Amino acid sequence: MATLMARLLFFTWLILPFCGTEKARQRALRQRDAEYIERYNGCMQGPAGTPGRDGNPGANGIPGTPGFPGRDGLKGEKGECVRESFEEPWKPNFKQCAWKSLNYGIDLGKIAECTFTKMRTDSALRVVFSGSLRLKCKNACCQRWYFTFNGAECTGPLPIEAIIYLDQGSPEFNSTINIHRTSSVEGLCEGIHAGLVDVAVWVGICPDYPHGDASTGWNSVSRVIIEELPK
C-alpha cells in the first residue's frame, strides 16, 4: 500500500509540470488569437478585390443658412462721366459767295452778304473774306473791316476784324498815292444757333481815329467763304 501511494505521488510530480506548461501555452495561443481577431475584425484579410464602380450622384443636401452680411468696402475714386452720342457722323457743310468786281467805295456800311444754313447749334463757323482793300487820307486815319452774323458782331469769343491805319497820308484825297492790296479777314465764331445765318462784311471806323477814304474789291474778285466746323 505504501508502495502504491509512493508511485502515485511520483507520477503526479511528473505530470503536473507538463499540465501547467500546456495550460500556459494554450492561454498564450488564445490570447494571440484574440488579438488577431480584434485587429482584423474577426476575419483574416484576403487579397484585394476588383475596384468597384462609382455610385449614383446623391440627392441635393439641405440648403445652408444665410451667412453674415459683409462689411462695406472702401470708397472708390470718382469716375468720369461719359455720355454716349447717337448723332450722325459729321458731314462737311460750307458755302462760298463770290463777286467779280465789287468796286465798293463806301467808308461806312455793309459791303457784301452771304446767307448760310447752319446745321448744328454746338458747332463753330469759320468765315473768310478775301479781296482788295484801300485806304487814303490827308492826316492819320484808320478803317476797320469786320464780319456780322444776323446783324451782330461775333461774341464767341471776340469780333472778327482787320484794320488799315495810315499815319501820314497824301496832301489831297485825289493824290496819286492810291494803293489797293488784296487782303483777308478771317476767324472762328461760336455760339450761333442752327438755322439760316446772314453773314455780312462791313467797313467802319476804328475807335478814337477819324475815317479816311476806303475802297473794297477794286478791279478783282472778292469772296466770302463760310464753313461749319465741329467743336
Rank of each mutant, 00 (worst) to 15 (best):
E80H: 07
G67W: 10
I106R: 12
S101R: 07
K95F: 08
E38W: 02
P66A: 14
A112H: 03
E88Y: 04
L102R: 07
E113C: 15
G64R: 07
N93F: 02
G55I: 00
E38P: 00
T65E: 09
G109D: 04
C43L: 11
R83I: 12
I111L: 15
G46F: 06
Y36S: 06
G79W: 03
R53P: 15
G52K: 06
R53F: 04
D54E: 11
E113W: 00
I37F: 03
G105L: 06
Y36E: 04
R39H: 07
A48W: 00
S85H: 01
P89Y: 01
F68D: 06
R53D: 02
P92D: 13
F86W: 15
G76L: 09
G70K: 00
A59R: 15
G105W: 15
C43Y: 12
C97D: 05
M44D: 10
W99K: 01
Q96W: 01
R83T: 12
F94E: 13
G64V: 08
W90K: 03
Q45R: 11
Q45W: 04
R83W: 05
G42V: 05
G55E: 11
G58F: 05
I106Q: 07
G61Y: 08
L102K: 04
N93P: 09
G58N: 09
P51C: 02
P92A: 15
K95A: 13
P57F: 09
W90S: 00
G46D: 08
